[in-house]
Design a binder for these strands. Structure first.
Lengths: 185, 185
DNA sequence: GCACGAAACGGAGGAAGTCTCCGTATACTG
DNA sequence: CAGTATACGGAGACTTCCTCCGTTTCGTGC
């Protein structure tokens, strides 16, 4: 890759992260180009679709997801608290930018999406948490990690779109958690 | 209202229902105007915002919601089956047009939305079903009908956006239902 | 009937956003 | 330092939204 191309690539990424966090994932592409000091053509050459750009931006903060999942697995919290803590982190993570939950949850399980690998990271992390509960027989067996991602992602979508407060999220998550656990309260 | 205005109003409504079901609630407004044989200005005079138009279109099939809720309440089904039957109908109803779940669930609880009254109809119907279970002590008490609407609506949103099959919806609904009911399975 | 004012129409066009095309400029290679 | 592959940039085509205002139509009173 040519030196100027590399420089632009990085500049675009840096500006995109900034703009996405200010105005959401639907922010005008041309604005990002302008603020990065490049032409629209240049931006589109580097990132042909909006999703390609989102994928690149999201990449950096997706690593922490694995760490969070491992923490929860290692934590010895009771099932209910473990799930709440994990789902809460999950929702927070994908809700970092407005429009993020819909984007990510919509691509969940769709191998053609440019952001599929990110979804897979999330799904795998979720599988690890669920797996540790399943081993102990705490979890219902008729639902897989993909569907749990969709369900928790769904909560994040409505919270994001409706501007709901954390309490609402938590009370919806509590219902989901009770639905996932085997035993009585 | 003048006779020509009335005629146009009805024609627009008829065409909008058609176009929305073909192409989803995001279909271009100008297309609807063209296909209704009126100018864009005319359409916008009758329905200043897209939501006003959606509200008018949705009005007709919102009545059946009350009937469905009453059927479920009267049916004497066991709690689990009653809720599944009701939620399934709920999801089906709001998913009639692509984009419908997001629109409706996003407006849920937001009194400023032009489609608020429709949301209230749904919420009230949901409250009736939940109330009949609550009376019998079957339901957890720390969640209200609005949040249940959001939760079930959330399932519909991801199913709509991801093109999920009815089985996926049903298995997510089952989790929600188990989370809402008090007793063990 | 007919004329007149109010009501309604319609589509041109501005604004915002997406994305492409291609003439121009720049970086690397030998 | 010349030549070529690579990359740049922004004009502009296209789409959709929505408004503005000159023109048309309706319905009423005479």
């Amino acid at each position: 890759m040519r030196a100027d191309a590399l420089k632009n690539h990085e500049k675009i990424l840096e500006v995109a992260a900034q703009v996405f966090s200010e105005r959401g994932l639907d922010a005008p592409i041309d604005d990002i180009a302008t603020r990065a000091g490049v032409g629209a053509g240049t931006l589109y050459r580097h990132f042909p679709t909006r999703d390609d750009l989102i994928d690149a931006v999201v990449k950096s903060w997706m690593n922490q997801v694995d760490a969070t999942a491992d923490d929860v697995v290692a934590s010895d919290l009771p099932p209910r608290e473990a799930l709440l803590s994990w789902f809460d982190a999950y929702v927070t993570r994908i809700s970092r930018n407005k429009g993020g939950p819909a984007k990510i949850t919509g691509a969940m399980g769709n191998a053609d999406s440019p952001i599929y690998t990110k979804c897979e990271t999330l799904r795998a992390a979720n599988e690890r948490v669920l797996g540790s509960l399943r081993e102990r027989g705490e979890l219902r067996s008729d639902i897989d990690s993909l569907e749990v991602c969709r369900l928790v992602g769904a909560v994040a979508v409505v919270a994001d779109q409706g501007g709901l407060p954390p309490e609402s999220v938590r009370s919806m998550l509590n219902v989901v958690i009770d639905g996932l656990l085997n035993s009585p309260s």
